[in-house]
């Protein structure tokens, strides 16, 4: 474990917590893409499927973190699609998720480290996570604005994989560890946030709200 991965995971936890708090406190999921949250839930379930296959005692933090990610993302989807369904902005959350899921699944079958079920599910999860934020970014471009708290959520969510890139550089240099598929997907994922990062740093940090077109 290195500082980059530690802060990456903390940033990811923070993002999940910020979104849950926003929805719970405001009792509204306005401005939040339910599709992105569904895609994240699918990512966690397919990536941590080993938790279900052979139950292991929660002896280390990694198992606990995996369970937190899965339960928090499923609970977030429950809040969006059931509890606060009336506030879900379905009209603007209109990006076709199938256009993300099918290519990710196809690519996972073509480009993977090992052609076995668990590995293909993991690869699918990595590819899907790289593009899972697109419905959320699409929704913001349709509504033309993002609530400040949602911007903080996006910043934490984007920073998590950016920090993982530093972690991969660190591990390549000191542990000669390489996970090409995760690295390529992680770079693509972080690039998708660049536009938002620019808006966040030039606007939200100064207390302004993000309004598109910038």
């Amino acid at each position: 474990m290195n500082i980059f991965r530690l802060f990456g995971d903390l940033s990811h936890l923070a993002a999940i917590a910020i979104l849950l708090l926003k929805i719970w406190k405001t009792r509204s999921c306005a401005g939040v893409s339910g599709k992105t949250q569904l895609l994240f839930a699918v990512c966690f379930i397919t990536r941590y499927i080993d938790l279900f296959l052979h139950f292991v005692s929660l002896y280390n933090t990694e198992k606990v973190m995996k369970l937190i990610y899965i339960s928090a993302s499923v609970f977030t989807c429950y809040l969006i699609f059931f509890k606060f369904k009336a506030t879900y902005d379905g009209n603007h959350d209109s990006m076709r998720a199938e256009f993300l899921i099918v290519p990710a699944a196809g690519l996972a079958c073509l480009i993977n480290t090992k052609f076995d079920a668990i590995e293909i599910l993991w690869t699918f999860s990595i590819y899907l996570e790289a593009v899972a934020i697109l419905p959320q970014l699409f929704l913001i471009s349709k509504t033309g604005e993002a609530e400040t708290i949602t911007s903080h959520y996006l910043f934490a969510q984007g920073s998590y994989r950016a920090l993982y890139i530093l972690n991969w550089i660190y591990r390549y240099h000191y542990e000669s560890h390489v996970d090409t598929i995760a690295i390529v997907a992680g770079v693509v994922q972080t690039i998708l946030y660049c536009d938002f990062f620019y808006l966040y740093i030039t606007k939200v940090v100064k207390g302004q709200k993000i309004v598109l077109p910038a």
């Binding site: 995971d9 990694e62 973190m65 990610y69 590995e119 993982y164 972690n167 390489v178 996970d179 090409t180």
Partner: peptide, 10 residues
Amino acid sequence: ASDNAVHDEL
């Protein structure tokens, strides 16, 4: 550096 098959990250 070999591409490792064991994914030890979240």
